[in-house]
């Protein structure tokens, strides 16, 4: 048991407390009508949002960068506990939902093999909800990518991605 704990990779975690009841936050997270309004970073839009929100179901999201570039993500649901927890697997895909490697898109994302995304909805009482998203990315990698970096570092990363492509052959 102890060995497992030691070898487990610390994951990227994003939390947020909402001044709203849990059912509402759940709805905003699971209803495509609302997901379209928030999916993707600042300045991005979400023109497509097809959701099949059930265990075994798969959703497809499109996010568009401010300069019009489209990125697609698919999410598969493994476990759903109403108003409490969602265990899913999100990955970059094409517009049909077929998985593609982030590096192919020039995106750096280090995923942990066999790990899932876990989203937890906690009722804090007093009408507040704490949302925790445990992403499939090692903490270290998230920390590194969380900093605004110099041009050369970005270039180094591309070089590393390319080196990976070379090795993969």
């Amino acid at each position: 048991m102890t060995e497992n704990t030691v070898s487990e990779i610390e994951r990227m975690v994003v939390t947020r407390v909402f001044d709203a009841p849990r059912e509402l936050v759940w709805k905003a997270w699971t209803d495509p009508k609302y997901v379209m309004q928030w999916w993707g970073p600042k300045g991005f839009t979400a023109p497509v949002c097809k959701m099949d929100f059930r265990v075994g179901g798969k959703s497809l999201f499109c996010m568009k960068t401010p300069d019009g570039q489209e990125f697609w993500n698919a999410v598969e649901y493994h476990e759903i506990v109403l108003h409490e927890k969602i265990v899913s697997d999100m990955y970059f895909s094409d517009s049909k939902g077929n998985k593609i490697e982030p590096a192919e898109l020039g995106i750096e994302h280090e995923a942990i093999d066999g790990a899932y995304d876990v989203t937890i909805f906690e009722d804090l009482g007093n009408g507040q909800t704490k949302l925790t998203h445990i992403g499939n990315e090692p903490m270290e990698s998230a920390k590194n990518s969380g900093q605004l970096e110099g041009w050369n570092q970005i270039l180094d990363k591309i070089a590393a991605v390319v080196a990976g492509l070379v090795q993969a052959k």
């Binding site: 509402l24 928030w38 970005i154």
Partner: peptide
């Protein structure tokens, strides 16, 4: 290069900024 630089802080930023927007949606709801 632009794609990569846009995504240099990618995954965490994706979630943090999505959460910012989610907060606005939830308040509106």
């Amino acid at each position: 290069i632009k794609t990569v630089s846009d995504w240099a802080f990618n995954y965490r930023r994706f979630w943090e900024e999505s959460f910012d927007k989610l907060e606005i949606v939830v308040n509106q709801m």
